[in-house]
Design a protein around this nucleic acid. Structure first.
Lengths: 267, 267
DNA sequence: GATCCGCTTTCCGTCTAATGGAAAGTTTCG
DNA sequence: CGAAACTTTCCATTAGACGGAAAGCGGATC
């Protein structure tokens, strides 16, 4: 025989097949290894982040790629086209984002500033929709980003007009998070004062609280059932926002959005 | 003993456990059962559409809900929040959509019409981004929707300036698809004539070809490497678009987008 | 140009986790 | 109030998932 070892026989297979994880959870963990800071990953990075063996990661990602949940880009993996399309069907975006967009346009028309729509999610606010023109400077936040309640105009607006039990959540977060910049509110008393002022004035502002050179105004979006879980705002870089002319514009838009929200039910 | 049947003993379990499907493929099939026409589904509808037994569908969807890929909305299931956020990381949207948005704003400012960005996907065009103001009438297309190459301004613009091998794909589709309205182009000769004209003029139009009361103009977006896989356009309802003043605006925006596309590599 | 290192991909013996029919529980409807 | 349709739970069976090992693949480094 020419060939002494046609194929090496492997006797041990997988001594510790698995702890207690389901296939689906692993596949989802792979998807979950992507985030805005890691939009493209190699196989071994995915495996590391998802904490599953490479061999398993390899098999599963192939399936995800086959379906279109992931795509290969050179040697790396990226989120697939099909997943994006699927995400468009999510009620948050369909019910609020799409509805609000035209009103946000109006604000952009008039103010020429970056316009943001934030919604409340758990213990923070989430940037749901963002508009910017070619003249409004580079937007520094991305749709899908999150900010704490106490360090954003959007968050404070919701805090002032939203459900009262948000208050403790916000305080806990503030204590846990520490300051993002030297201007970040960091004492309960200060936050209380600030929020009271927001409630009185009807709008919230930030001055470099979540980032230097980062100014913003936001007004609450109060839906037709009286609840407030969203806010509309504009942000500028370098110089403070011109509150006077902008607040009325935001108010009108926010009322327009609020009127139409939650007539169609929950999101 | 007081209890004769503490628990009925089941002897048969699952005679035909499975054909040849993987767990992952089933889970993905469940996700795939959602589309723009079916954004919310009951368990049994999901199971039916995905062609898997309800019991299995039930188990898997629970896991999907647990992770956040799906959410429950009353008795039904909808696409989850987390999936939407994940979708935002898809290169299509991040690399082209975000880049194009500010230019599209400019067009909206000037023309006050619904502005659409389509990209080429397989044998059709896909609506990647859409802007509309409060004054531009109800937009009738949704982001994520698809149109055939031969029955849309966007498609014809890409057909005229894009890769030559698109031509046969378009013809095949046209033959297969049939007319969407009485105005839809349906003969190869007619399409050829139309596309030649688009190439000469530099822009494409449609008049009720994809839907009645549905008029549009589109110009190609030619990226800095000379290829064309996207187009920018406006649409109106009821009356034809005013070509004269709009085309130059679209051209400028499309050039701006094209210049910046594909410097960062593929999407 | 040989050696090493880290990565992707393939292989396959073992065995756990997935399976789905059936039954029970729940809501809807006439 | 019974029938129909749907959701949820159960569990005996086994098909599919598992992952260590080894092979293959660049691209650094000496």
């Amino acid at each position: 025989m020419a060939n002494a070892h046609p194929r090496k026989k492997r006797e041990s297979a997988s001594p510790s097949p698995t702890p207690g994880a389901t296939v689906t959870s692993r596949a989802l963990a792979l998807l979950g290894s992507f985030d805005s800071a890691h939009p493209r990953l190699s196989l071994s990075e995915m495996a590391r982040r998802a904490e599953i063996p490479v061999a398993t990661a390899h098999r599963l990602s192939s399936e995800l790629v086959f379906w279109g949940a992931l795509e290969r880009s050179g040697q790396d993996y990226v989120v697939g086209h099909r997943l994006w399309k699927l995400g468009l069907l999510a009620p948050v975006r369909k019910n609020i984002g799409e509805l609000a967009a035209p009103y946000m346009q109006d604000v952009l028309f008039v103010t020429q500033n970056v316009v943001n729509l934030f919604i409340l999610e758990d213990d923070h606010v989430l940037l749901l929709e963002r508009l910017s023109g070619t003249r409004s400077g580079a937007p520094f936040r991305r749709v899908g980003e999150q900010l704490p309640l106490h360090a954003s105009a959007a968050g404070k607006a919701i805090l002032a007009f939203g459900a009262p039990d948000l208050w403790e959540t916000a305080l806990e977060n503030m204590a846990r998070a520490g300051q993002m910049t030297e201007h970040t509110i960091s004492s309960p008393a200060q936050l209380r004062r600030e929020v009271a002022m927001v409630r009185e004035r009807g709008y919230a502002t930030t001055s470099q609280e979540a980032g230097l050179d980062n100014f913003g105004i936001a007004v609450p979006i109060i839906s037709s059932d009286g609840t407030c879980t969203a806010s509309l705002g504009v942000v500028t870089q370098n110089q403070p926002v011109a509150v006077g002319p902008i607040v009325p514009v935001l108010r009108i838009a926010a009322r327009g959005i609020g009127r139409r929200i939650s007539l169609g039910g929950e999101y």
